[in-house]
Design a protein around this nucleic acid. Structure first.
Length: 309
DNA sequence: CACTCAATAT
DNA sequence: AATATTGAGT
């Protein structure tokens, strides 16, 4: 029952990789909590001066109507389905500056080095990001697709090897499940149901599912992705990429983007219906399945949607 | 050291 | 729930 109607998502898959010109905006820097705090997020008036306004940044996209930041402040605890998250644009920025971070107390303390020993926020794997991941893996080949390489290929600033490793592990599990699965059964193990959703949002190259099966017709895509490969080569060869700017060290150019902070809620809306087919994707207000349970101060970091989707 | 995997923690 | 972290084995 699921395979049949799944044809849809495949169509979307055609998008492939973004042209080099567009795939740069992916870069996203990490904002260390200190940094964020130091800026002005909810801070004094004059603050910010020499830096970026976290919310002021703009994407070089061609969005007809780049939302100026529909700040959707979640009122702390209770908040039922506010306006449907219908707007799934690359801009649901939402800061949850809980500003704790007592450490450092700002610069005064003598400027200790917060960058080290600070925990980075959890990375949010958006479908876009995941797609880059899959593309990278696809182009590297299953055998060469190891965390480090994948990470380099993706050239996403702020991505760490462990981020990738962790994701890769899950992704492999997902692939294995898919293989063993063939038609039967069903049962959706609730355990990995969630996993499925995320991974379902990206196309799984057929080859992944059949380790040994060259003969099969080559399906679309997965061929002219040299772009990525080229970039990959470049990235790998030219270590001039400044990644891991997770430290407070501002890049010489002072050009860091603002990471989208997601406070916890407003998760990415998946429009694909591969899993769960039950209601029309037509802007149905999502609702439900959003029981927000006490996690208030969880800060997360989301990477930029590349805009290609 | 880097990779994979399972288990566990947050 | 979704990631991160750890530990053992290679």
């Amino acid at each position: 029952m699921r395979e049949d109607d799944g044809g849809n998502w495949f169509t979307k898959w055609q998008v492939e990789l973004p042209p080099p010109e567009e795939l740069t905006p992916l870069t996203q820097s990490l904002i260390t909590p200190d940094l964020a705090l130091a800026f002005d997020i909810g801070r004094g008036p004059s603050s910010s001066n020499n830096s970026i306004s976290v919310v002021g940044a703009k994407q070089r996209h061609l969005l007809p109507s780049p939302p100026p930041l529909p700040q959707q402040l979640s009122s702390s605890t209770r908040d039922s389905k506010t306006g449907a998250p219908a707007a799934r644009q690359p801009g649901p920025v939402d800061f949850a500056d809980s500003g704790d971070l007592g450490s450092g107390g700002g610069a005064g303390g003598g400027g200790d080095e917060p960058a080290r020993t600070l925990k980075r926020p959890r990375l949010v794997w958006t479908p876009q990001l995941h797609k880059r991941f899959v593309d990278a893996v696809a182009h590297l080949g299953i055998k060469n697709a190891v965390p480090k390489t994948i990470m380099q290929l993706m050239s996403v600033d702020g991505l760490t090897r462990e981020n990738v490793a962790s994701h890769l592990q899950k992704y492999r599990l997902y692939l294995r499940r898919m293989q063993g699965l063939s038609g039967g059964g069903g049962g959706s193990s609730s355990a990995d149901a969630a996993t499925e959703r995320l991974f379902a949002s990206a196309p799984v190259p057929p080859h992944f599912l059949h380790p040994g099966r060259p003969s099969s017709d080559h399906f679309l895509a997965l061929q002219h992705h040299q772009h990525l490969a080229a970039e990959a080569a470049a990235a790998a060869a030219i270590p001039q990429y400044r990644r891991q700017v997770g430290h407070f060290g501002l890049p010489p150019n002072g050009q860091f983007e603002h990471p989208l902070l997601q406070s916890r809620q407003g998760q990415i809306a998946h429009s694909m219906g591969a899993a769960m087919s039950m209601h029309n994707p037509i802007q149905s207000s999502v609702g439900e399945s959003d029981s927000v349970k006490g996690s208030g101060g969880r800060k997360v970091l989301t990477l930029f949607p590349t805009g290609d989707d």
